[in-house]
Write a protein that binds this DNA or RNA. Structure first.
Length: 137
DNA sequence: GCCAACGTTGGC
DNA sequence: GCCAACGTTGGC
């Protein structure tokens, strides 16, 4: 099992939107960045990820699960772009803000901190555990 | 709303 | 293949 982080602007696609899709899940489409796409290609069914709200909120708000491995992004005919499907697993007890992540030295290497523009990123097992603890999970 | 950082595009 | 120009993202 590997761990990831999915970033979204809540005004475009929020945690609530994701939860509304239930177990059917939803394509994580629209990614037009090779690094992010490559990470999605590495994902396996059942991998878990954090759902992060960028922009105004800047906090991790929920846990998601990969429910379909990488396939053609249905929003484009360009076969360079693949995406996975994810479904909401559960919300966090306490949102973990970007400030909280930055304040914890153990999380200093998270892509969220070092490469803020990357919209799909890998999370190490250690980082996963630490953030889950902070989130009250 | 601004701007820095980054990725992509296209001319040479 | 290099690099300048441009567009986009996201933190502040």
């Amino acid at each position: 099992m590997r761990y990831w982080l999915f970033k979204s602007e809540p005004s475009t696609w929020s945690w609530d939107d994701q939860v509304a899709k239930g177990d059917a899940g939803e394509e994580w489409d629209g990614v037009r960045n090779y690094q992010a796409r490559n990470f999605m290609r590495e994902m396996s069914l059942g991998d878990h990820g954090f759902f992060y709200h960028s922009q105004k909120d800047r906090e991790i708000v929920g846990i998601v699960e990969v429910c379909a491995e990488a396939h053609q992004d249905s929003t484009t005919d360009d076969d360079r772009w693949d995406c996975v499907d994810i479904k909401a697993v559960k919300p966090v007890e306490t949102p973990v803000t970007l400030d909280m992540v930055k304040a914890d030295q153990r999380l200093a290497d998270m892509k969220l901190v070092t490469n803020s523009r990357l919209s799909v990123q890998p999370v190490t097992e250690d980082e996963w555990k630490i953030v889950c603890e902070m989130a009250g999970i």
